[in-house]
Design a protein around this nucleic acid. Structure first.
Lengths: 139, 139
DNA sequence: ATAATGCTTAGAATAATTATAATTTATTCA
DNA sequence: TGAATAAATTATAATTATTCTAAGCATTAT
């Protein structure tokens, strides 16, 4: 008799060494890395690591809700291991992305939300970060 | 003696027929089209139109502040001829993007904004649009 | 007219991401 | 424990979006 599959997210996919290495790198990481960033770091310790594995793992984790795919950087996808509701602060000069906790109440105008099932929202704040300001002053 | 260049944005670049065709298509367009969408439509009327011209024009217009480049769709860039401050409502089922006027006040927590020169913000609301809801009910 | 400048074109090049096929590694369960 | 099965990894090819390049055209200024 086939047992009911465990609902536990953590055991839903095989914990291969490659995946563990990627997960370990992402754990607590607030730098919003791209696939390439992840590959660069993780492949150093794990010689045979393939780029495809990075993408596969990221897609798997995203589908499982363990990871958030960010569409903030126009050049590439970024990944955020923090899947809780929060927003982002982007420096338009250096591209750095910082987290903003969600303590900001935002309401959609009623007439717009009426015909929409609203699932969530994401705010991108953009501006100049402190280190870029210093750099510019120095000139 | 070299004359001072006109500051007027509208006359800063040549109004070639290709550019006019693209501009005409974008005028008042609220569908947030991709470069390909634009190419498909405009090249029908303008046989010789090249894809590179579409990209060149879009980049030129974006740099000139006549067009907003949207980083909402993870697959490709979208373009919005409405450069006024406003937000977007995205159907995660069909990908349609609607406009939301900016009458929503949003404040950054003070401690975060302190070291940042804040230039603006953009909110993405996501959910299910009415036509996708109907489609799902029909099943 | 001629030169200079900027635009368009076709196609090549690049970069990010996904697909494929063969092999290897986990997991299951007898 | 150890086959059988399922899933993951790898290397590489393929795809897609976008940018670059080089040559020709058009427009403007001389």
């Amino acid at each position: 008799m086939k047992q009911i599959q465990k609902k536990n997210e953590g055991t839903r996919f095989k914990r291969t060494p490659q995946r563990l290495a990627i997960l370990e790198y992402l754990e607590g990481n607030t730098s919003h890395p791209s696939a390439e960033d992840i590959f660069r770091v993780v492949s150093k310790r794990y010689q045979s690591m393939s780029f495809a594995t990075v993408y596969n793992t990221l897609n798997t984790l995203t589908r499982a809700g363990e990871l958030r795919e960010l569409t903030i950087d126009p050049e590439r996808k970024r990944y955020d291991p923090d899947t809780s509701r929060h927003h982002h602060l982007i420096c338009v000069l250096c591209g750095k992305i910082a987290d903003i906790p969600e303590k900001i109440g935002v309401e959609l105008p009623k007439d717009m939300a009426e015909h929409f099932v609203l699932l969530g929202h994401h705010i991108e704040f953009y501006g100049h970060c402190s280190s870029c300001q210093k750099k510019n002053k120095a000139k």
